[in-house]
Design a binder for these strands. Sequence first.
DNA 1: TATAAAATTAGAATGATTACAGGGAAGAAG
DNA 2: CTTCTTCCCTGTAATCATTCTAATTTTATA
Lengths: 158, 158
Amino acid sequence: MTEKAILLDSLRKAGLRLTPQRQAICELLAESREHPTAAMIYETLKPRFPSLSLATVYNTLEVLVRLGAVNVLGNAGDGMAHYDADTDPHINLACVSCHKIVDFPSQYVQFLDEEISATSGYRVLGARVLYYGLCPECQQKTSIARKEPDYDHRGNNA
Amino acid sequence: MTEKAILLDSLRKAGLRLTPQRQAICELLAESREHPTAAMIYETLKPRFPSLSLATVYNTLEVLVRLGAVNVLGNAGDGMAHYDADTDPHINLACVSCHKIVDFPSQYVQFLDEEISATSGYRVLGARVLYYGLCPECQQKTSIARKEPDYDHRGNNA
DNA sequence: TATAAAATTAGAATGATTACAGGGAAGAAG
DNA sequence: CTTCTTCCCTGTAATCATTCTAATTTTATA
């Protein structure tokens, strides 16, 4: 089952309607490796859905998060929440300077997941495994330019 | 070295002044197992420092995060960023219903940390290892009351 | 004590996210 | 194909955690 199909299916199973907007948002989430923000999704889809509202994007994301189909990574130094439709155990590496987020696979996360589900007593809905720091490129840039990496705490944050 | 001493030391090493406010914030962060928000820190310290400003709390937290002495966990469903002065590898379990965050020790996080530092090429400044879901108590509550768990995405988030 | 640099403070500004209200579309049933 | 019900979308207003700013106070140093 493709990632998109998984997202659509979780909506269907929850008895929610598969509107064109929701389908487009799911598709974008599934196919993007960008860990998009609500604003990025909105801007990307706006040409195809001129009447699209930011509120719809937020609503859909909220639903998907609540269903456990999408994880909220929180802000990556840009004051906006990033979303990840890949709920397989993996790590996200965020650069606090250029705000990019990349995936980093590790077998240990798999074990972690199983350990928590098995022994914590929590009903796990999602995870936020995010390491933040300076990516290789920005380490070079900042060591040359002596520019401070910026980091804010919104989010919110979060 | 106590956790408080570690925090104060990282300020000192960075050439920053150890003002009474900063010392109090460090002490609270070090001794609390609550993963406090800026607002919680402010409220707790206000009686002892009647002139304390929220801006000071945010400034100090920002400095400590930038120095890698404190991690930002992001919001736990309450729209505010939570902070964690325990930078030893461990997992945070957040309940999206009661907004409490508890620690969960696991040897795998240790391995994870080492793997990332060794092979990712990133200069790691901090981590946000947060699983969210329903804690045992809230699972009971919600299964009785059928009350939806709430979760928002602010960020900020986080 | 005088001086300069760094911190603190109060309050205003910012901006991502949420709440709200009215209008539309989708499905069920006849 | 209509009606009914329910859910969804949209635009806008409101919220509120966080950041910014300018002025004042504290600190370190000599």
